[in-house]
Design a protein around this nucleic acid. Structure first.
Lengths: 320, 320
DNA sequence: CTCAAACATAGATAATTATCTATACGCAAG
DNA sequence: CTTGCGTATAGATAATTATCTATGTTTGAG
């Protein structure tokens, strides 16, 4: 036999024999028969091309080579155990990394979940990507990330999806606006106003447009702005009205009011999305598990819609 | 596949793949086909139950687990190479230990060989045992030593033997002795004198007695002394004559003369003897090799009788 | 001198490994 | 959109391993 074919198992057997000082005892400990162990030792000695023991007055006594092999075996198996520990941590989701891609709007909410998670698992490195719907679709297509957050999921063929948070779209107006304090506002009223809107391709805008289309309506006076933050400031400054995710507004939002427009809020949801064809890193899985369990501790109850555990079940099946 | 069955070979393959960054290149380096290497990698990944690579734009790129495995593999194979180096040294006789057992008489000569040898191989530990013939025979029986030096070898059935040095027995007398300056001395003359003799069981005495018997003679006045050194001093002090190995006397030996007795010196030889049934340690072998080559540098030419290389040949056969 | 315990050897077998050839797949570059 | 190059898969096979049961051998202890 050649040294190349040495297995860790064989070293393990050897170490046990040396420890116990007896072939028979080692065999018992390892749940093997005595001849098996004898033969393993023989193979090992052949591989090393050196006697490992001399039987000296009934005792097995190590030769110099045997002693050195013992040291080597301890070092080697020890080092390998370290590696296995590493793997265990990784698989337990204690360690590792994953990336999550968010649509713009979600960036106001997800930190409330990501923050506590990374406190709880400081060894997990995560990358957060942010973009508009279009950009995220591309990333999804190119399989760049482990988890995606969309309000309107892409083709379900290739993905597992779970809602986790309500995402109501509301109409906001400056406090001084004439409509600001009415009990109820007609849709037509706001369509006459100037509307600050995100670029086409953004989820909020797509959602709003398709909803409008369903109502057989359309707006007249729009103004495009690149970010939700800019829109918020714009509205406060009296530049016009806007349709935004409720989450874009802080809890208290001085200078801005939510108009009670008929048909609003437009209901939608954010979803966690993972590709079916991409292995979910253990760390990413651990994040979803965390989300499934801790979501209600991190986010206001009124928006909760926690279906994450069904996603976990689906991905478990996929992995088995 | 289980981690237990991991071989060093497999790690070697893995390391090569990581180093070259390519399955195909690694295969060439290892003189394997590409599919073989691919399959090895697959087995390895199965054993670890973790993907080791992701193919990223045509390149193989390590995962975290892969990187950690690579580190582990380097450590482990490195450690094992150390062990192999150790073995190589051991087998080259650069390192190790052996024991050699000498009959009393030989202790005056062998240091001339042992000294230079242990200078040349300082890493070799040797144990030198000294005793009379009887004691050595016991040690031989109990297989306690690696090499024995006898003048009259024990049963050749179980041993390889090689002469290496003439061992002439001479008769010595004090300088003042009446016989000291004669041109020739009769055997009978000395048998009348008092003879200082080693104990029965010593090789010198046995040899002398059996030679005497061959001559049909015997002595009358003997005195037993425990060591060759004591005999030498005793002779110098005028206590009597003695029959000793020529090697017991220093080059110059004031106060003592060698008598030119008829029939003397009695010729005999010292032999290196190794048991057939006992593995010769590499270090012991290296000593014999040294002896075969360097004997004539260490000992006076007049006594040389170097047959050690034939012994080496015999033991080589035995080992093959 | 015999006995039992510990070790070694033999013979058998199912599983696994190491390795090949031939072929299919995937993707970057022309 | 084909063509190569690098990988992966399939199928085959000889060698090796891991393991057993049954049977010798050695050896210290009584």
């Amino acid at each position: 036999m050649n040294l190349r074919h040495l297995t860790f198992r064989l070293l393990e057997v050897y170490v046990t024999v040396v420890r116990t000082g007896s072939v028979t005892a080692a065999a018992q400990q390892l749940h093997l028969t005595q001849p098996t162990v004898s033969q393993q030792l023989k193979r090992l000695a052949e591989a090393v091309a050196e006697p490992l023991f001399v039987s000296r007055g009934g005792r097995l006594e190590l030769t110099d080579s045997g002693r050195e092999l013992y040291r080597t075996a301890l070092d080697v198996t020890g080092r390998f155990e370290d590696f296995q520990d590493y793997l265990a941590e990784l698989k337990g989701g204690q360690k590792g990394r994953f990336s999550i891609a968010l649509v713009n709007t979600a960036q106001y909410v997800l930190p409330k979940l990501l923050g506590p998670y990374s406190q709880a698992f400081p060894e997990v490195e995560m990358t957060v990507e942010i973009g508009n719907r279009q950009q995220l679709l591309e990333r999804f297509e190119r399989q760049l990330d482990d988890i995606y957050v969309f309000s309107h999921p892409p083709s379900l063929e290739q993905a597992h999806v779970a809602r986790f948070l309500r995402n109501p779209l509301v109409v906001i107006a400056p406090e001084q606006h004439p409509l600001a304090h009415k009990q109820e506002v007609e849709l037509d009223d706001i369509l006459q106003e100037r509307l600050l809107l995100r670029e086409p391709g953004s989820a909020t805008r797509m959602l709003f447009e398709s909803w409008l289309q369903g109502q057989g309506a359309q707006w007249f006076n729009g103004m495009q702005m690149a970010s939700n933050g800019a829109i918020r400031v714009g509205v406060a400054a009296g530049m016009g009205l806007a349709v935004v995710s409720r989450h874009v507004l802080p809890e208290v939002h001085p200078g801005i009011v939510i108009l009670p427009v008929k048909g609003f809020p437009i209901e939608s949801h954010w979803h966690f999305i993972v590709r079916r064809d991409r292995r979910l890193p253990y760390a990413a899985r651990s994040f979803l598990e965390y989300a499934a369990g801790e979501l209600d501790q991190c986010l206001p109850a009124e928006y909760l819609c926690n279906e994450v555990s069904t996603l976990l079940n689906q991905t478990t099946e996929a992995m088995a």
